[in-house]
Design a protein around this nucleic acid. Sequence first.
DNA 1: AGCGATTCTGATACCGGTACCAGACCTGAA
DNA 2: TTCAGGTCTGGTACCGGTATCAGAATCGCT
Lengths: 358, 358
Amino acid sequence: MPADRGQAAGQPTISEVAAEAGVGRATAARTLGGYGYVSPELRERVLAAAEKLGYRANKLARSMSTGVSHTLGVIVADIGNPFFAGVVRGICDTSRARGFDTIVLSTYEKLEEEVAAVNVLLDKRVDGVILSSAAVGKDEVAHIRAATQRVPVVLVDRAVAALDLDTVVIDNRDAAREAVETIIAAGHRRIGFVWGPPMARPPATRRELLAEAARNLWTDGERLRGYLDALDDARIPFDPELVTVGRKTEEQATEEVGRMLAMPDRPTALFCTETDAVTGALRALRAAGLAYPRDVALVGFDDSAWAAVMEPPLTMIEQPVHELGAKAAQVLLDALEGAEPARETHTLRSRLIARASV
Amino acid sequence: MPADRGQAAGQPTISEVAAEAGVGRATAARTLGGYGYVSPELRERVLAAAEKLGYRANKLARSMSTGVSHTLGVIVADIGNPFFAGVVRGICDTSRARGFDTIVLSTYEKLEEEVAAVNVLLDKRVDGVILSSAAVGKDEVAHIRAATQRVPVVLVDRAVAALDLDTVVIDNRDAAREAVETIIAAGHRRIGFVWGPPMARPPATRRELLAEAARNLWTDGERLRGYLDALDDARIPFDPELVTVGRKTEEQATEEVGRMLAMPDRPTALFCTETDAVTGALRALRAAGLAYPRDVALVGFDDSAWAAVMEPPLTMIEQPVHELGAKAAQVLLDALEGAEPARETHTLRSRLIARASV
DNA sequence: AGCGATTCTGATACCGGTACCAGACCTGAA
DNA sequence: TTCAGGTCTGGTACCGGTATCAGAATCGCT
């Protein structure tokens, strides 16, 4: 006799329900699965039996049989980042509303974790994948390409140039330009850029910087371009000394901003491309005995409750995180329902919340 | 001929690998599954065939057959809360290290979502569940009890009195007492408590407040008790007017703190039990034209980068979020590996980070 | 050489669902 | 009465793995 492997204590199966109701297995399955013909009378009997036994369909078995799991896979760079937490919530809300579960995986910005995550999702036979990838170059997208051959994939927050996929992003470049324009309008001409693409040393030229940007995260590149756009429009020369260098950590931001602040012609304004860059900059400001907006103006990405309660409150860029996730889920779900994949980029608008830091 | 349901484009199965290698299905399965006997020669052939076809085991099918999914289910109250994000990371890190995947679900503090989440996880046949529940009373734990009959369940962050389960929490009561003691040591005697259990109106008595607390989230109750402990030790009479009332939102905190601040004998210190309570209090302070620590001292739960960069920096309680998750995962995994469930409560220590707000 | 033990293989029956299909039963029209 | 057609049921073959087991091949030992 085979052991009762695969059967947790007393999980009733459809066969048991059928036996209890005194009908065939197929009939019970049709009733419980909600497909095919079944007379009201038998239906009633089956339902009663299922109720009595506390039957719950084994979704694993169902997925096996149908090949559909009604589950979306989500891979984000860092679930601990409120930005992604918001995006995930948007995804969950809309997919839930359309009858799909979600499995969320976080890569903590590591490409190898991302590859592993894709495999986990594929192994679990999710129906589709939403991904904010750390991949950039052609040689880093093999796992994504492999995934697209199995299930629809939509990119969120970060476009990947090497890939032609449905993508949902915000207007990073415009948002950055608007922020820097605001700074310029307040009379500043020496504007530091905190958290560009990580480089070993300051770029020698603007060209070198852009080349490096192209080899890094799409969002960073876009925000950098927006910064340069604003500088160009105002005919402010680009100074390579005014962009941070090195790894993207709060500590590094503190250090680099400290370096800028120590320059004889130090920046009078700082544009921070992420929330950790803001806190890092703030630390540097304090260390240098400087205050905003008096000594230096400050604008950053990713608004939060904290930014609003700072004294003075911070001018920040608010991203439509929930909509970003919702839209991504919608695009994916539509594709799953047979809509022709348009492979287009959906760009959502962010918003500059002017407060008192510039 | 049956349609090719269940089979995504070109996913090779074990049968195809077996055919390609010219061996029986069972032999291929043994090789790829890593169990049973198989000669080096055939093993080599099978491996080569699998490689050639790009075979990946269907974990769904495997789970069906073995009844084990190597997946942990995690249900937290709000993944958007950095506290829980940290806990989740702790869980993921350790379960990953021990060969388990995790499925994370967020209930956004709604009990019905929690019930649904439990069902989703059970339907997906996870091997165990880690849960920070919003349930309190005996009548709210049916879903948890049902889950425990199928798989091991460990509670994290929030104990549930009605349940006898393995539980991993922090020393909320002690932490709160220590924080309030610090405030008292600085000479304060009128100390507001921001974000107690939600009540319609201020409690008439201390007894009523405690009764209400018992009907609410465990953490809130513990923190409240710690507050009262410190008051008692210092022989400071309890004033019901000094605890906030109403729903637990940042707005409500702002409003209630505003009310306190308008009192003739207003509090000279505020103890905030959660991060949103801190930002809410800060808003109220600003609205009242008051500054900390000059006019009122401030201590709050859940340290963050922002708290450190505030001017002046905030004294906060830091919770060991990562350890909390890691420990919970460890306890669950041990139970899964057959360790006798001890059904004990593991209490982790938090830490008061003294900065400049008191 | 004979024979039991050991090594190894591949049928085959599961797991718990879904899908197909043959056929029973019941109509109603010719 | 017969038969075409519809309604409804349950047997059975899947899905892609794992587990059992009978038996073939090989081996060592007397």
